[in-house]
Structures are given as C-alpha cells and as structure tokens.
Design a protein around this nucleic acid. Structure first.
Length: 294
DNA sequence: ATACCGACCTGTCAGC
DNA sequence: TGCTGACAGGTCGGTA
C-alpha cells in the first residue's frame, strides 16, 4: 500500500505508542512467502526483546531490538544503564545488533490493537506485547515481507528528502529509461512509488515517458523541488488515503492529500482544463496532462 | 550492465 | 445475481 509518506506516518505513530514495550510472544501464519527469515528465527529474535527504536528507510520499517533490558512500559530506553556500562570498561560490552524489518508491499498494514479485537483475515504475524496490546501485520495481497537481521540493516538508494540537488541530478545522467521508471527505481531514490512519481512529474511539468538523461538542468531542478514538496505535503497530511490505507491504529488517513493527476483519468487538468490521460509506463498506470507536461 | 515484462497474491469494481 | 476481465500504493528474477 504505502509509499514514503505513508510509511513515515506509520513509523511516527508506532514510535509514539510502542517504544519501550517488550515482546512477550509471537504468532506467525503458515505463509512462507511473507517471511524472509524462518518463523523460528523470527521468534528467537523477537520473543523477550524490547522495542528500542523504530525508523523508516525508504519504504522499509526498521525496529531496533534490545535483548538485555528489563522493560519499563511506556518509557524511553534506559539511558542510565548504558551510560554506566560505558564508564565501567573501555570496551562496551559486545552486543549483537538485531533488527526487525517490515516491508508493507502493496496492501500491508501494522495495527496496534487490544488482544480481544477481531483478528482480521490475512493476519500473518502477531506480537503480543508486555503492555497487553498486540502489534499485528496484516497483508491481504501478500506482497509484503518481514524478517530479522543481526547486522545493521541498510538498502541501496538515497533518501529523496536528504539528497542534494547535485546528487539528485547525477542520478539521471546518461539514463535512457523513462523518467517515471527512474523515479520508481528504489536503487536510485528510495521511497517514491506510483502515486508520488505521477504527482511530482505533473508539478514539474515533465512527461512521464521523457528519457531521464534528456532532462535539462532547469527540469531537473523543478523535479527535485516537486519531489520534495509533494512528499513533505503528504507527510504533513498523514499520507494519502486510498481504499485500504490505515495507520498504526487502524484509522483511515484523516487528511486526504489532494492528488492532481493520480487516479483522475478523464477529469480536467487543474491547471489548464485538458482531459487527463492514462498510459502505461514501466508496467504501471501513469497519469498526466498532455498539455502541461512536456 | 541495463531495461523490460511477467509473476507473485487477493480484492474490488465495471460491464454484461 | 453472478460471471469475467481489468486494475490496484511493490519488488524480484528471467530474458533480451
């Protein structure tokens, strides 16, 4: 379901609600495709671990797991203990990094619920927390994935909200692929998906099929500004709410982002009134204004 | 190396 | 009412 702004919204919601909580036990569905680590491995890493931090990396959700501390519910990780350990010995105690990774795919959601709440169809992973709540990973279409790692997780690609204009422009130099495909390529920029690719190209007045390497300096600058503006606005609005989007409490996004081209095939362009078109680029439905976008 | 395309899944909706 | 086909926010692996 989610692109960068939706994942960011979910992560912020989770950070407020579950950091410091401990995982008492877990349950996994029998669907092997969903799990990139074996359910046994996931259970071994998660059960008894404390959720120390959660952050977004592209469209991935990354949870830091802390194995050693006794949980203090609803509080931040205990800094005093760590400080003590650092002073006590020159070398900090060797501690394996362990992280729990979730990618929501097209239709995945993470729901924090009371344990007596109905367990929806297509629930694949349930974490029973010491606070008495459950964190559930639900994903009807099963394009989502979850797994655990022992080293610091990382992905290729640059965060579109951190990248500088020069690096941004460099990503597209010499590429013959359509600019829309390049925007969707997570090895270049991580986090942009179909909706925000279309919206960014509309605001930058660039046709989705333009070869990436043919964009002028000015077009690259416009695209850079548009991408960041679109993402920032969407995050401020709490993500775009389409059919099955829900945040970590199961609420629909309250503030629907006003989309200007995505899903508006046949409607008049907000800028010039021309009938918006739908084509297929990189196998994805692509929406644009044939007059405004060159 | 790069780029396209089908495959992976289930659900929903339009049209007949 | 019920069937069929198109389409859906993503990624991967095979092929050209």
């Amino acid at each position: 379901m989610p692109e960068l702004p939706e994942v960011e919204t979910i992560v912020r919601g989770l950070a407020r609600r579950i950091i410091g909580d401990r995982i008492d036990s877990i349950w996994t569905s029998g669907k092997p495709q969903t799990f990139k680590s074996s359910p046994a491995e996931i259970a071994a890493m998660l059960e008894g671990a404390r959720l120390a931090a959660v952050r977004r990396m592209g469209k991935h959700i990354v949870f830091d797991l802390a194995a050693e501390a006794a949980p203090v519910l609803g509080r931040a990780p205990q800094l005093a203990q760590r400080r003590g350990a650092r002073c006590g010995s020159r070398k900090p105690p060797a501690r394996l990094t362990s992280q729990w990774i979730v990618h929501l795919g097209m239709t995945g959601s993470l729901l924090l619920m009371p344990p007596d709440a109905d367990v929806p169809k297509h629930t694949h992973l349930v974490l029973r927390l010491a606070s008495g709540r459950e964190l559930r990973f639900v994903d009807p279409r099963r394009f989502g994935r979850t797994w655990v790692v022992r080293e610091a997780f990382t992905t290729p690609g640059t965060e579109p909200l951190d990248v500088k204009l020069e690096s941004f422009a460099g990503l597209f130099r010499g590429r013959k692929t359509p600019i829309k495909s390049a925007l969707l390529n997570q090895k270049l920029l991580r986090g942009i998906g179909n909706i925000y690719a279309d919206e960014s190209l509309f605001r930058a007045a660039i046709r989705p099929r333009r070869r990436a390497g043919t964009l002028t300096r000015d077009e690259l600058r416009r695209l850079y500004k548009s991408v960041q503006k679109v993402l920032i606005e969407a995050i401020a609005a709490g993500g775009t709410s389409i059919s099955d989007y829900v945040d970590s409490e199961g609420e629909s996004g309250l503030f629907q982002v006003r989309l200007r081209v995505y899903g508006r095939t046949g409607e008049p362009c907000v800028r010039c009134g021309t009938c918006l078109k739908r084509i297929v680029v990189a196998g994805r439905g692509t929406h644009y204004c044939p007059t405004c976008q060159k």
